[in-house]
Simulated scan of single mutants.
Amino acid sequence: MYFFLSQLSVSDILLATDILPNILRTILMKETIISFSDCISQFYFFCVSETSECLLLTVMCYDRYLAICKPLHYTLAMSFQLSCIMIITCWVLSVLIVLVHTLTISQLQFCGPNVIDHFFCDLDPILQLSCSDTTIVLLEVTLLNFVFVVIPFFIIIVSYVYIIITIFRIPSITGRQKVFSTCSSHLTVVCIYYGTLVCVYLVPSKGHSWNITKFLSLLYTVVTPLMNPMIYSLRNKDLKKTVAKIINHCLHLHFSK
């Protein structure tokens, strides 16, 4: 589990490093200039991090499924060699597939004025600047979303159905709570991550302004990488004690005044 968490952290670091500096510069300076090559590069690494996170969350869900539903076979089924192969596959697929998609976008013709009304180079703002036919790009996006977002999400749902059934078969309440705690952090991250994707990409945008869409995009580019380490760290007993001490210290200072 911690090996998979390290890879999820790498994905979050890649996303934050790719997006946040330009967002801060845009907010502070109100507007900023970015070259076409930089914009395409930012879009590429953004898509790599998002795609890898979808695949990593699916792999982590399979790991939790084996640990809870088939605990006696877990050591044999989820060996370190298999874990490495799954991680390498996730990253290679993300890098190569997104590269093909990005190269297709880079072949489009763009007509001025090339002004992106967004915090970063996302797909819709880029396509809005193009004066050529974007049908092929949209077909690629639909196919990639189905393969790397819909199918992984379906696998996660099916896995958690089996996990929940297994948990309810445990006779003692203490045993249920202990087993559920092993997958609660992952389930929380999945809900936050896919919830933000649904809000931005699947909810119709006709009912709200473009500004709302832009701020919703901050959910999966800023909030999700921020929340992931906090959610998983809450399982650490030492961190819990430290947080409790800080809260008690703040309360003591407040009431002492």
Rank of each mutant, 00 (worst) to 15 (best):
V100N: 13
H101S: 06
T102E: 11
T102G: 05
I105R: 06
I105Y: 01
S106M: 09
Q107W: 05
Q109W: 01
Q109D: 12
C111M: 11
P113T: 04
N114Y: 03
N114F: 04
N114Q: 14
I116T: 04
D117Q: 13
C121E: 02
D122Q: 15
P125T: 10
I126Y: 04
Q128L: 14
Q128N: 12
L129F: 08
S132I: 13
L138T: 13
L138W: 13
E140K: 12
T142A: 09
L143P: 03
L143G: 13
L144F: 13
V147Q: 00
F148D: 04
V149L: 07
P152C: 07
V158D: 04
V158H: 00
V158L: 07
S159T: 04
Y160V: 00
Y162N: 07
Y162A: 06
T166H: 00
T166G: 01
I167D: 01
F168G: 00
F168Q: 05
F168S: 07
R169L: 07
R169N: 08
I173M: 14
T174G: 03
T174L: 14
Q177D: 11
Q177K: 15
K178R: 15
V179S: 07
V179E: 15
S181E: 15
C183G: 01
S184E: 13
L187R: 04
L187E: 03
T188A: 08
V189F: 05
V190E: 01
V190L: 03
Y193S: 00
T196F: 05
T196A: 10
T196R: 02
L197G: 08
C199S: 10
V200Q: 01
L202A: 12
V203Q: 00
P204K: 08
S205I: 11
